[in-house]
Computed example of a mutant assay.
Amino acid sequence: MLISRRQALITGMTAIALIIALQAFNSVGCYGHTLLTFVQVVGMFVLVPLLPALVSLLTANPLRAVGACLLFAPWLVLAYYTDCVRPYQGGGASMIYVAVLMWGTPCAIIGALLTGPAMRLLGMSVAPRR
């Protein structure tokens, strides 16, 4: 199955937008952040793990951004669960976003790298650039 380059780019950008929306949900729903604080959190803890997805948009296969986002999203869900759902365990400030940064980044890289072979295995490819 041949996927148009335009459709692949739109799908990759949609995946990135959904990650930012997930962080917006965390920021507003759990932490009560203002717009400025939300932008700072995205810049400090979400942008670095999103770099593999952003770089993937520039490669021959922009759908690698979807794989990067798929393996990064569970870390944001874990952050929400840890800080907002699970009862407080005591012991000081939460450090879950350090885990999001430290473990989400390698997971996003792995997701971006595995998407190409997975697509080939399923017989999918992206149309070349013109």
Rank of each mutant, 00 (worst) to 15 (best):
A8M: 11
I10S: 10
I10T: 12
I10M: 15
G12F: 02
G12E: 10
G12T: 03
G12V: 04
M13L: 15
A15R: 02
A15E: 05
A17K: 07
A17S: 14
L18N: 02
I20K: 03
I20F: 12
I20E: 05
I20T: 02
A21M: 05
L22F: 02
L22G: 13
L22C: 13
Q23W: 01
A24S: 15
N26D: 15
S27V: 01
V28C: 04
G29V: 08
G29L: 12
C30T: 11
C30R: 09
H33F: 15
H33P: 00
H33R: 13
T34W: 09
L35A: 15
L36N: 13
T37N: 11
F38D: 02
F38M: 10
V41R: 04
V41F: 07
V42A: 07
V42P: 01
V42F: 06
G43M: 03
V46T: 13
V46A: 06
V46L: 05
V48R: 07
P49A: 04
L51F: 08
A53T: 00
S56Y: 01
S56P: 01
L58C: 08
L58I: 01
T59I: 06
A60T: 14
A60S: 14
R64W: 02
V66P: 12
G67V: 08
G67R: 03
C69M: 14
C69N: 12
L70K: 09
L71Q: 03
L71H: 03
F72D: 00
A73E: 04
A73T: 10
P74Q: 10
P74W: 05
W75Q: 04
W75K: 02
W75T: 04
L76E: 04
V77H: 03
V77L: 15
L78F: 13
A79D: 11
Y80E: 04
Y80C: 03
Y81C: 12
Y81T: 13
C84N: 10
C84W: 09
C84V: 06
V85Y: 12
R86Q: 12
R86A: 14
R86C: 01
R86G: 01
P87V: 09
P87R: 09
Y88I: 06
Y88T: 07
Y88V: 07
Q89S: 14
G90Y: 05
G91Q: 11
G92T: 08
A93W: 08
M95V: 10
M95E: 11
M95G: 08
I96N: 02
I96F: 09
V98F: 14
V100D: 00
V100P: 02
